[in-house]
Simulated assay, not measured.
Amino acid sequence: MKKMISILLVMCLVFLCSSIPIYAKSPVTLIINSEVVSSDSPPVIINGITMVSLDSLRKLNLNLNWNSINKTVTVTTKVNQDKLVLKAGEKEVTYGGNTIKLESSVQVKNNRIMVPLRFISEAFKAEVKWVKDANEIIIHSWDKINTYSTLYQGDDLLAARKIALSLPLIGENKLSSSKEMSSHQLYFPEGEVLRYYHVWGNLVSYYEIKNDLTYLVWEGVEEVGKSGVYSKEYGKRPEPEKNEVYFDLARDSKDVTYGRVDSKDVLRSMRDDSSNLLVGMLQSIPDEVRTDKVVN
């Protein structure tokens, strides 16, 4: 009799465990159009399916209408006139008058409607990328897809670099320049977009772009008159570059000098009238070919 009771208890435990959704142990970061989305219901993985709260997808220009009586949510967007109607606990949704079966039912977590990420994003023509090693979900709304394509795969270095310098910065400088009347200088490895140096006076900052965000990797204060010698520095100093292009803007000047570091040819042009000072410094370098395209 005791043996039979033990068997029944084990069977009950197995049944309960199999019916409980399995949530990811580590947090998943959601980044939409280069903005890290904060939410009281962050993305989770349930039974191998990534679920996100509808509220956290508002950056995709979604309009949400909650009907508390029948527990449905109607989602619309400027992309098209089709409506997406979801109901809590249901696997079937209506979209554009058609019934579609989801890979996981609509769920409620922390009073938020949780839905399968990929279906929602693809239904509204967004681009979704799952970065497994970083535990990040990258989403580009329909109107930004071409922008990120230019950033990562475009041949136009000037256009790609302008986008790169417009991305949000992660990390703040701990050091500052000790020079007065300082100029601004930008250095890119020749043919590259996704990493660069910004020099302001004798403060050198090195940045790398990863997953639509720009990270401050290293900074150093160069000793006056001693190139490559730093009195203070933070982070991991990058290896010296072999070939670089530069853009130099003297203080209170509208003229940008630019070219290849190892060339005697100095080019000059008016700074672009841009609200972003560094973006306005960028110019096209003759015969420069891109070398750091990212393969999808």
Results as ranks from 00 to 15, higher is better:
Asn211Thr: 10
Gly171Gln: 06
Gly225Ser: 11
Leu203Tyr: 10
Leu165Ser: 00
Glu223Asp: 13
Lys25Cys: 11
Leu62Cys: 00
Glu219Pro: 02
Met270His: 07
Ser18Ala: 07
Ala126Asn: 15
Asn67Tyr: 13
Val289Arg: 14
Leu16Glu: 08
Leu169Arg: 10
Ala134Ser: 12
Gln81Thr: 15
Leu8Phe: 08
Ser231Glu: 11
Val36Met: 12
Ala250Val: 12
Val36Tyr: 10
Val75Trp: 00
Glu239Phe: 06
Gln107Gly: 02
Glu241Ala: 09
Asn47Gln: 06
Pro238Ser: 07
Asn65Ile: 03
Tyr148Ala: 13
Ala88Pro: 01
Asn70Pro: 01
Asn67Trp: 10
Gly171Cys: 03
Ile46Tyr: 14
Gly228Ala: 00
Gly225Asn: 14
Tyr197Cys: 03
Thr76Asn: 04
Lys264Tyr: 14
Ile100Gly: 00
Val85Ser: 08
Thr50Tyr: 05
Pro43His: 02
Pro240Ile: 01
Asn243Ile: 10
Val44Arg: 01
Tyr207Cys: 06
Val266Met: 02
Phe119Ala: 09
Val245Lys: 03
Met114Ala: 00
Thr257Ile: 11
Val199Asp: 03
Ala250Ser: 13
Leu151Gly: 03
Ala123Arg: 03
Val115Arg: 06
Lys236Arg: 01
Val14Glu: 01
Ser269Thr: 09
Gly280Arg: 03
Val294Glu: 15
